[in-house]
């Protein structure tokens, strides 16, 4: 009985969430259109003045979205250490 209740509650929550998400797709700009361009134009116009680097990609990656890049480096660190710890080789009779 409790199992069925929780199942119907879960189905209800998922349906409501799906309806909200479907409704939000109405406001997404059309594919290929360039409507939400305030941020891009701001980066292009003020990138050299604010960060001083001529390569706009590098200034976005390391300055405007630095926290995002920091998370990316964290993922890189975790991936490399995970591979190193899991697939280490048995050599000379002991793990090292």
């Amino acid at each position: 009985m409790r199992m069925e209740k929780s199942k119907t509650a879960g189905a209800l929550i998922i349906t409501i969430l799906a309806l909200f998400l479907l409704y939000s797709t109405v406001f997404i700009p059309k594919f290929g259109s360039f409507e939400n361009k305030e941020v891009a134009v701001y980066y292009l116009q003020n990138g050299l003045r604010l960060t001083g680097s001529a390569n706009i990609v590098n200034s976005i990656v390391w300055d405007f979205r630095g926290y995002d890049t920091m998370g990316e480096e964290t993922v890189l660190f975790a991936a490399a250490m995970g591979v190193f710890l899991i697939i280490r080789r048995r050599r000379y009779g002991h793990y090292r």
């Binding site: 960060t51 001083g52 680097s53 001529a54 390569n55 590098n58 200034s59 300055d63």
Partner: peptide
């Protein structure tokens, strides 16, 4: 140039 971009 580039602030701290070079060190990063």
């Amino acid at each position: 140039s580039g602030g701290f971009t070079m060190f990063s």
